[in-house]
Design a protein around this nucleic acid. Structure first.
Lengths: 146, 146
DNA sequence: ACTATTTTGATTCTCATTATGATTTCTGGA
DNA sequence: TCCAGAAATCATAATGAGAATCAAAATAGT
């Protein structure tokens, strides 16, 4: 149930398309969506919002910190609501499902590694690609880990 | 100095374009190159190889395990020779330079995290984006780490 | 409600990459 | 060596995600 104040806080004026898109992001059963996904779900809900607007608004939301954009392997960008808790992702290459995780030791090592090279991190992305529990035929992991 | 045997081993027939591209990848001062980069460097060397061929061959090389393709934020794919030693990357958003690193503890934690979710990793990507030593104005890291 | 400003939506455009179809190059056997 | 068939290449066209354009519509402050 997003309202005007969420957009205001983000420094964006309140408009119908922005509210609809924000609401969709909050209420959809899918947490990770492409612009195309968002557009289709709006169409399904009989909202009359153009694809160009979806792209534009998602990009504005990203700039305002309302959503986070990810580039998973091989496809289009996906967006998720930014709930302030950083996390990384496992992507199932069989079913497309996305799982979130957070590991403080990984984060810590990243900072360490960067510090050792005098590299100043402003962002990072970590994606694990593989087969999720539900998609495993025999319950066993046959593939070698990198 | 790549020769026929490298292509043969990879299950690819020996052709002039494939040899030229492989040689370029080995000899170029740039280790991480886009298809466009490869194409331009071939042009500069007066090689008559089409852009489509460059894309096709790089994709074949990837399939054969000769090169690794990366998708850094915001741009085109970059390719690097696969020398068998897995590593991750730091990308300087100021100068574009790419630094490689390997941290066994990060790798270990990735496997651990995946195992905890019964997730079977076949691949992963970790990119750190930020400002490299050489590009830092005051020598200090002002930005907050994620 | 009135007006200046911003946003929208249809379309067009760009750019990376892939597909196509014709032509050229290899390859292996006669 | 010559030839047929296969495979690879080239130029070009097609695709698809995403950004830019611009007239029309919606918004915020008076």
């Amino acid at each position: 149930m997003p309202d005007k104040s969420d957009l205001k806080k983000a420094g964006l004026k309140t408009t119908v398309p922005r509210l609809k898109i924000l609401r969709l992001l909050e209420e959809s059963s899918q947490r990770h969506m492409t612009a195309e996904d968002v557009y289709r779900q709006l169409l399904d809900a009989d909202e009359d919002i153009g694809l160009a607007t979806v792209y534009r608004v998602l990009t504005q939301f990203e700039g305002a910190g309302l959503v986070i954009r990810h580039h998973f392997e091989g496809g289009s960008s996906v967006f998720e609501l930014n709930e302030g808790k950083h996390h990384d992702h496992m992507v199932c290459v069989e079913c497309g499902e996305v799982f979130e995780f957070f590991d403080p030791r990984i984060e810590e090592r990243q900072n360490q590694v960067a510090a050792e090279s005098d590299f100043c991190i402003d962002d990072h992305s970590l994606y694990l690609y593989g087969v999720c529990k539900g998609m495993k035929k025999n319950g066993k992991c046959s593939k070698k880990t990198v």
